Amino acid sequence: MPIGVFARRSGLTSSALRFYADSGLLRPAEVDPASGYRYYTADQVSRATALRRLREIAMPLTAVEAVLGAGIEEAARLIDEHVARVLEDAAAAQRTAVLLKSSLGDVPSLPVATLKGPVLADAVEQVLTATAREPDLPVLGGLRIEADQEAVTLTATDRYRLSTRTLVPSEPPTTTWAGTVSGDELRAAVAEVRRSALVRVEATAHGIWLRMADREDQYCRSLAEEFPDFRLMLAALPAVTTRVTLSKELLLRALEEHCGERIALRMTDHGRDILVAGDERPEMRLPATVTGPELEIWFELTTLYPAVSTAVGPDVMLDLRGPDQPVTIRSADRGDLTTVAMPVKPDASA
């Protein structure tokens, strides 16, 4: 087929095809010696399409040549490595851009609070388990920070879970401040934060500084989208009807052994145990303290497990309000980390 037809079939321009022919990546099947017209075969369309797509992800010509000449597994590895480099470069560029914006106008940062580094790092990791990556709702990947004269509160939600933890500052905050910052950038900063005895949080117009005396300061950009009104949701929760206290370790083990996607918790009427079910395996009976009426409630494993695993302390407390109402999960003896998890409809096959 002539070069114009092949260009339309492959999605490449005629000029691009001439360039790739000269570079040796995609030579024409035949060149008319008299006219110089270039002709291609249908068998070359797949290679041309792959070449176009590799260039669309900004892969250099040398790497493109390596991918096109490699076997399936090697080609996949090379593509993955290239994409990882692109994402790393993009993240670095984004961080640099944020730093540049933070320095525009030389506006001083606002001191928010001083926190113990290891405590802050643990809290960030715990709360960020309730985030989600959704391009249409980037705020669900962020962490809400609220500071007043008494405490600093961290909150995150993916719409199915809401986790919040309250920290007592090492020094009383001198101001009230609230903002939502990038969860990914906070995750990246956690390693440095954990190794610092004290971290001073300072707010700017575009993010927060995490100032550390013995390590490099970290900067996390703010998110412009409005954070969900979680306080309104919490205030609207019905009264607790059934309360369960049990070993965090035993509950996690039961969830790990039940491999189904959905898990049922069944509270018995004698107040000494609960049943964990959800697939064809036998029910597991766990010792527990149960107050209130019998209740069966279902969860997605991906919702319940992280809510339990991040709880502080050896025992967890579940505050239940009904089979279709959010459940509050927290430590049985420490209330500074709380997770609200949404149940799902019962499994019809159970």
Results as ranks from 00 to 15, higher is better:
residue 265 L to M: 13
residue 238 P to W: 02
residue 282 P to E: 14
residue 240 V to Y: 02
residue 248 K to E: 05
residue 277 A to F: 02
residue 252 L to E: 14
residue 269 D to S: 15
residue 241 T to F: 00
residue 253 R to A: 15
residue 207 G to H: 01
residue 263 I to W: 04
residue 270 H to I: 06
residue 224 A to H: 13
residue 201 V to W: 03
residue 257 E to K: 12
residue 274 I to W: 03
residue 269 D to V: 10
residue 212 M to P: 06
residue 266 R to S: 13
residue 197 A to V: 09
residue 222 S to P: 01
residue 226 E to Y: 01
residue 196 S to T: 12
residue 246 L to G: 05
residue 235 A to E: 12
residue 219 Y to E: 01
residue 270 H to R: 12
residue 262 R to Q: 14
residue 200 R to H: 15
residue 195 R to T: 07
residue 240 V to G: 03
residue 218 Q to E: 12
residue 288 A to E: 06
residue 207 G to F: 02
residue 270 H to Y: 11
residue 203 A to Y: 03
residue 233 M to V: 14
residue 195 R to P: 00
residue 196 S to M: 05
residue 270 H to Q: 09
residue 198 L to C: 00
residue 230 F to I: 12
residue 289 T to M: 06
residue 210 L to K: 04
residue 219 Y to R: 01
residue 286 L to Y: 10
residue 228 P to W: 00
residue 291 T to V: 12
residue 200 R to S: 13
residue 216 E to P: 03
residue 220 C to P: 03
residue 241 T to P: 01
residue 274 I to L: 15
residue 213 A to L: 10
residue 227 F to I: 08
residue 241 T to Q: 09
residue 217 D to S: 10
residue 197 A to C: 08
residue 218 Q to C: 04
residue 199 V to I: 11
residue 264 A to N: 12
residue 273 D to H: 15
residue 263 I to M: 11
residue 232 L to T: 15
residue 239 A to C: 06
residue 243 R to V: 10
residue 228 P to D: 06
residue 265 L to S: 06
residue 219 Y to I: 07
residue 247 S to Q: 06
residue 279 D to R: 03
residue 209 W to P: 02
residue 259 C to P: 05
residue 251 L to V: 09
residue 257 E to G: 13
residue 293 P to R: 02
residue 260 G to L: 11
residue 274 I to K: 02
residue 232 L to M: 13
residue 288 A to D: 10
residue 260 G to Y: 06
residue 285 R to F: 08
residue 205 A to Y: 02
residue 231 R to S: 12
residue 238 P to N: 00
residue 207 G to I: 04
residue 280 E to S: 13
residue 247 S to L: 02
residue 215 R to T: 00
residue 281 R to W: 09
residue 233 M to P: 01
residue 273 D to A: 15
